[in-house]
C-alpha cells in the first residue's frame, strides 16, 4: 500500500490542515516510509490479544455531581483571539 498526494489531501482535510504542494509531496514520502516500517507489526499474530489503551487498572472514575467554583467568563476569555459580549467570536457559520 502506498500513500498518494490525494490520500495526503484527504487526511489533511480530516485534520483541518492546509498544506502547500511541497508539504504534500514531502508528507506522502515520509508517511510512506513510516507506515512501511509500521508494517513490521504484521509479523506478530495478535489474534485474541486484548488491546491496551492505558496501563492503569482504573475504570470510570466517578465523582458526586456537586456545584463547584468555575472560571469567571472574563478569565476564560482572556486568551481569546476575538470576543464579543462575553463570548468567543468566530466567522458566521450559517450564510
Amino acid at each position: 500500500m502506498s500513500i498518494t498526494v490525494k490520500d495526503v489531501e484527504h487526511v489533511a482535510n480530516l485534520a483541518r490542515l492546509e498544506l502547500s504542494e511541497a508539504e504534500k509531496e514531502q508528507f506522502a514520502g515520509q508517511l510512506n516510509a513510516i507506515l512501511e516500517y509500521a508494517e513490521k507489526l504484521n509479523e506478530l499474530n495478535t489474534e485474541g490479544i486484548e488491546p491496551t489503551s492505558h496501563v492503569l487498572p482504573l475504570y470510570n472514575v466517578m465523582r458526586e455531581d456537586e456545584v463547584r467554583p468555575s472560571l469567571p467568563a472574563e478569565k476564560a476569555l482572556s486568551n481569546a483571539p476575538e470576543e464579543e459580549d462575553g463570548h468567543f467570536k468566530v466567522p458566521a457559520v450559517l450564510e
Partner: peptide, 20 residues
C-alpha cells in the same frame, strides 16, 4: 489556516500520521 500557520513540520507530520 490557523493550524497550518501555527504548527511546525514535525507536529503536522504526527497529526497526519495519527489522523491516517
Amino acid at each position: 489556516r490557523s493550524r497550518s500557520e501555527g504548527f511546525g513540520p514535525e507536529v503536522k507530520r504526527r497529526i497526519m500520521l495519527g489522523t491516517y
